[in-house]
Structure formats: structure tokens, C-alpha cells
Amino acid sequence: MKRKPLGCFSMLILAFLQLIAAFGLPAGAEAAAYAVRQITNETEALSNLGLNNLGQIIWHRDASGTSPEAIFLYADGASRWLSQTDTGARFPVLNNLGQAVYRRYTFSDDQVWLYNNNALSLAALDQDPTLLRLNNTGRLIWAGRPVVGTPTTYKCIVANEVGTVKLTFITDGNTYDSGYLALNDKGEIAWVREFSLGSPPGHLSL
């Protein structure tokens, strides 16, 4: 629909309002046209914030009393407790498809959980999954020890496609990533390799 052009009076009003908006701002800055909305009203600490191009937000909430630590997702104007049936949920990651993954600690093992199409599913079991990365095509990678018995000092970079249980080992155990891991939408991966960890138990594929 064609917009009616502003009249002289309207333009004068707009210029006046712009003057009001700019008044009191620090030197070098102008007012930006933004509306700020408070999403939560929590009493526990929040962390691990993620925002995607759909305007969805994901975060971690600390445990409180009998309430376990939890992952929340804000979408379509409402917040939902994603990890409601889990305990020990941490480190959420959200992509532009609205898919999310997070780590869950248990007494027996650690798990990677996937939220996809309004449903939660177990994406992987791992003894110590860290550095979860989820790209915008649904490829999931992490640094972990998914083979039972792998010494705690050895980690691999492991890839998994959302909706499958196939694991691909990008590295063997001597290529621990030193805390940095990057994944792009083409499925390429970059990391820092450290060379001092000695010979690992080899496991190049499952």
C-alpha cells in the first residue's frame, strides 16, 4: 500500500521529536530506534544466552531449591521450559532453524539433548561432551569421549547430524582442541590442536 507523504506540520512535529530524542545523549552517539522488552522475571542467575535470526532466545537458569537448573526458550512471544523433564541441563545452543541442543549431566553419563520441531530427543551419549556447536543446517559437533573407557585426557571432535545417530570422528584422541572449536554452515570445522598429549587410544570411526 502506498504511504501518504508527510505534511509540513507532521514533518515539523517529527523534527521536534527528533530533537527531544537526541537531547541528553553522550557526545558521539545518537538515539537508535529500539523498543526494549523484558523477557524473564527470575530469581536465579541466568547465563549462556543465545539469539537466532527468528528472534528466538535461549538461556540457562541456575538451580533453585527443588527446581533444577534448566534451559528456557523464548519463541513467538512466550517462554517455555525446554528441559522440563531433565536435571542438570547446561550449555544450550540455538540455530536459525529454531533447533537447540544442550548438555545434561546425570550420575551415570552425560547426554546431549536436541530440541527440534517442538520435541525433545536424545542426540548422543558421551562421557564428557563440551563445546557444543550447532550450525544452521542442523549439523552438531562437540569435543567429547563417546567411546566408553577413553582416558579422561583424550577428547575427539565428533560430528552428528540432527535426526540421526551416526557419529563421525573428525579427530582422533590426540587432537584435543584446547578449548576452541568453530563450525560453519558448510560443515567446515576449525580448532586449535595441541601436540603434547602423547599417544591416544585410536578410534577414527564407529
Binding site: 523498543a35 523484558q38 524473564t40 541466568l46 523464548y74
Partner: peptide, 29 residues
Amino acid sequence: QIAWIGKRQASAATGQVFLASPVDSSSFY
């Protein structure tokens, strides 16, 4: 859009999640 965890008052005990969304200038003023 910009999201963050923060406090709007110094007395607030806990940070909250906020979302800032661009609006057209007429709505903004």
C-alpha cells in the same frame, strides 16, 4: 535485534533477559 542479560535497577538482585528490537522511527518517537 539485540539480546542480553542485565539489570534495569541497581537494587535488582538478579539479571533478567532483555530483547531490543528495531522499530520504525515514527513508532520509536
